[in-house]
Amino acid sequence: MDVSSILASHAEKYKSITVEKANPLEVDAAYLTVTDPNPIDVDSYDNDLEEHLQSLARDGTQALISSLFQLPINRSDDGPLAQLPAPIAPLPRAKHLPKPKPPTKWEQFAAAKGIQHKKRDKKEWDEERQEWVNRWGRDGKNRQLEEQWITEVPLHADIDHDPRKIARDERKARVAKNQKQQQGNIARAQSSSSAQPQPREERKKDIDRTLSSARVSTASMGRFDKKLEGEKKMRGVKRKFDSNEQGGDSERKNSLALLSKMDSDSRKMRTRPSSGGDETVNVRKAVKFVSKGKGAVAMGKEAASKKKFKSGKRK
């Protein structure tokens, strides 16, 4: 029996799902993308453009499909789901990365104490009614005490004792407390993130500054200008003084700060003329004195001639 034809047809079928190229195709499965780095064949391009493009696309798509079908697969109702890897060459994002939210006071406390977050169900089991009821909201369990038709009153209670009102006030107080804490968290988060300039606030400050400088920029420095109705008096910066009684520590610190400020090069209060060498001797003055006003050059010449004279005498 000759099976060569069957084998050949099988091989042909198998060949059609493998793509042979000089450079291997680069598949980025995360973006369902294949890049063919091989140069375009000029002959087939010129010969029949559409045919050339379609065969190129078929080869590329075949390579992509082959790699996609080899990925690990999850079964689902809609068909097999291929699990995609992370992208090889990521694309730029559309928006910046989300900034981490500052933790609330409770979250800080829980982290310090090692308290795990526990998810609380919205529903609660009602023993009497034998069903799940909302913890809050419509027919909420938190209003049960206010809404039940009969409530026990303690012995010797006041005449105006109203258990419904007490329960309601308590619930309202809890809500108010929670809201207050929430506001506190928001305020804390804002103050911690205020290191970044907030454009609206910056602009407001800028306008105020411009306005105040414009008001004093007239010939009379704003003194005889027409006042608008409801215009407020301009407020300057108030001087502030330290209190007279201070601890020794702060006084010492202030004095040292002042001394170091005086000593520092950048803000020297008296600048000395810079002179080379020893600063205790004024060289220019000393030379003038020794040479009796003739100058350094003359003194040098004189010294040289003296030396010559001395050496000659010795001989």
Binding site: N23, E26, T33, V34, T35, D36, P37, L56, G60, L64
Partner: peptide, 10 residues
């Protein structure tokens, strides 16, 4: 699916 063919894309 996306397919890019040419060495110029790299």
């Amino acid at each position: 699916l996306m397919h890019f063919a040419s060495e110029l894309f790299t």
